[in-house]
Amino acid sequence: MLLAIIAACEIGFWVLLAAGLATRYLLRWNRVSAVLLVSVPLLDVVLLTATVIDLRGGATAGFAHGLSAAYLGYSVAFGHSWVRWADERFAHRFAGGPPPKGKPRYAPERTRYEWREFGKAAIAWAIGCGVLLGMIAMVGDADRTEALLGWALRLTTILAIWSLWPITHTLWPARPKGHGDPTDHGDGGGDGRDAAATSGRGGSRW
């Protein structure tokens, strides 16, 4: 059931986001759009509440409980970036907005970009591990929460791997060939979800 709630929250995020942007740029219903977009973070509250209720009901923590903590962390840390990513593309497509910028290709802009993304990942790690520790303390039974410690290790490993990107771009910064523009941007979106999909790094929304 908890896995189904996680999936429903992810689907609900994109549905509310799409509806919020559609009402803003297509229908010009700014107030309705604001209500829909403000409702997006409430999905995280729903997931956290469901997780707490399940554990307090006597459930033994498993994969789904750890996943919910990780999901909450990345949702909070990357959520705003994901909304901005979608908003830029929606505005360009339907409201004559400027073309969306991708992530920078060259230093020093690319280096700063990678460190900003790592900062978000660190926030996601801190929130996720904080939620995990909160669950452990709430249950107060080591046998029922053993799986949550494993999730804390997973999140730490992900963060350690993620740190390789900014370190690499700091030590070996990419430079344009010839007279290329160092502020040139690629075509791909510069948000945490794209990075997660292409490099294995986790992903949120706020």
Rank of each mutant, 00 (worst) to 15 (best):
L67T: 01
R105V: 15
G180I: 04
G140H: 00
R144E: 04
R193G: 05
I158G: 13
A70F: 14
I167M: 03
L153V: 14
P182Q: 03
T51L: 15
G20T: 07
G202A: 15
E146Y: 12
L26A: 10
G97I: 06
W206I: 10
T157H: 13
P100C: 09
D181C: 00
G128C: 04
G128Y: 04
G20A: 01
W82T: 14
A197I: 14
V139S: 00
R31E: 09
P41S: 08
A197W: 12
W162T: 12
A70R: 01
A195N: 15
W162M: 13
D44E: 13
L3A: 14
L47P: 02
Y113D: 08
P108W: 15
T170A: 12
D87F: 00
G79H: 10
P176K: 07
A197N: 12
A50H: 02
I53D: 00
T156M: 10
D141V: 07
P108K: 08
S199M: 12
G150R: 04
T168W: 11
W165C: 10
S68D: 01
L42M: 11
T170Q: 11
T183K: 11
N30K: 14
A174F: 08
W172T: 14
F90I: 12
L26T: 03
F90A: 11
A147D: 08
G97Q: 06
F118R: 05
L17A: 15
D184S: 10
A95H: 14
P104C: 04
G134E: 06
A126E: 01
S199D: 08
Y71N: 03
D194C: 09
P173H: 00
A8R: 09
I136K: 05
R93K: 13
G20Q: 04
G102D: 00
A8Q: 08
L48M: 07
V139Q: 02
F63E: 06
I161V: 14
G188M: 15
R31L: 13
I161D: 06
L55S: 00
R205F: 15
G186C: 00
A174R: 09
V32H: 07
M138A: 06
A19E: 09
T111N: 05
P100R: 09
F118I: 03
L55E: 02
D187W: 13
G102S: 02
L164Y: 12
G12C: 08
T156V: 06
L42Y: 08
R205L: 15
T145N: 02
V15T: 09
P173N: 05
G200I: 09
V131G: 05
Y106D: 01
R105W: 14
L72G: 03
L48S: 02
D194E: 14
D184Y: 12
T51M: 11
S33T: 01
G119I: 07
A18R: 05
W85T: 10
C129K: 11
E146I: 13
S75G: 10
A77H: 06
E117W: 13
A142W: 11
K103Y: 15
W82G: 15
G97M: 03
G130E: 03
E117D: 09
W172C: 13
A91H: 12
M1A: 09
A69H: 02
V38Q: 12
T23S: 07
G79S: 04
P41V: 00
S33P: 02
Y113T: 07
L27M: 12
E114K: 05
L164P: 03
V32N: 04
P100M: 06
L3P: 11
